[in-house]
Amino acid sequence: MAIAMTGKFPRTRRVGQRFSGSTDSFGEQAVFYWTALRWSWRAVTHYKKETLRLIAEISMGSGALAVIGGTVVIVGFLTLASGATIAVQGYSSLGNIGVEALTGFFAAFINVRIASPVIAGIGLAATIGAGSTAQLGAMRISEEIDALEVMGIPSMPYLVTTRVVAGLIAIIPLYSLAVIMSFLASRFATVVIYGQSGGVYDHYFTTFLIPTDILWSFLQAILMAVVIMLIHTYYGYTASGGPAGVGEAVGNAVRASLIAVVVVTLLVSLAIYGGTGNFNLSG
């Protein structure tokens, strides 16, 4: 009867197989992520040199990327451009209703809660994450990971967890730079380019810049870094199919991590600010 039903409804069978495969893949990833996080203490205590090397590589880059400063410069320029764009759009839009003086409020509100975390997450996925996927994928197809296991070195804490820990540590100074660059770019565009009084801008900026929002923004960036590193290390660690398979793994990892950046931003914003946004504008 089952054979007859399978032959009679091939489309249903294919849909069921795809659903089953997706469920298996989700469970496999969940186990991988839990295992990687469970090894965190061992990675910190047993593989200190490797962790420090990865922190330096993540921050300043390696090879040709180190010439321009690695992730530090890339994330800095991305947030610099986003901060300037926020100032340009905010001043123009607010100027249409005669309240361009509130551009400082606009910069303090949008940069911290949305722009800087999202742009920094995209920069991390495109630099740190993609590089980790390519490195681990190349090691997998060249059987270097299997060689580590043969030598008695557990590959998960040595290759995966150290990268997650390094990304978690490196994101703090990287994100500090990102926030500062976005603030400076917004002020420069508003005061120097548009000619608004620096005192007016600083007044509204400092009035509406909530210190706790900055702390929550850092928490959001840290969560993004952990999620991005877990996703990219998974796709790199499980890569197959030769060099073409590594390229495919990098593409899949970047796609998944970009989706994760937006989802983390949404969930954190809902959890922290709720429906009201914890914001009151009155005069």
Rank of each mutant, 00 (worst) to 15 (best):
E144Y: 02
S176W: 00
S142G: 04
I193G: 03
L209P: 11
V164W: 01
E149W: 02
V227T: 08
D146P: 00
V164T: 07
S240F: 07
G247K: 08
P211F: 12
M139F: 09
A138Y: 07
Y201N: 01
T206H: 12
F208N: 08
L215F: 14
L148H: 08
F208C: 09
L159P: 02
P243Q: 10
L230S: 07
L168C: 12
Y235K: 14
Y204W: 14
A147W: 05
V160E: 01
D146N: 13
E143P: 00
L184R: 04
M139K: 06
A185I: 14
I222N: 01
S155A: 15
I172K: 04
A138G: 10
L209W: 13
P157W: 00
M181A: 15
G152Y: 06
I169N: 07
V179N: 02
R255N: 15
L223S: 08
L184F: 11
S182W: 04
T238R: 09
A138F: 07
V250N: 00
M224P: 09
V226Q: 09
Y204M: 11
G152A: 10
G242V: 07
V164R: 00
V192W: 13
G152I: 09
V192I: 14
I180F: 13
H203N: 09
V150E: 04
L136K: 00
I153V: 15
L184C: 09
L174I: 14
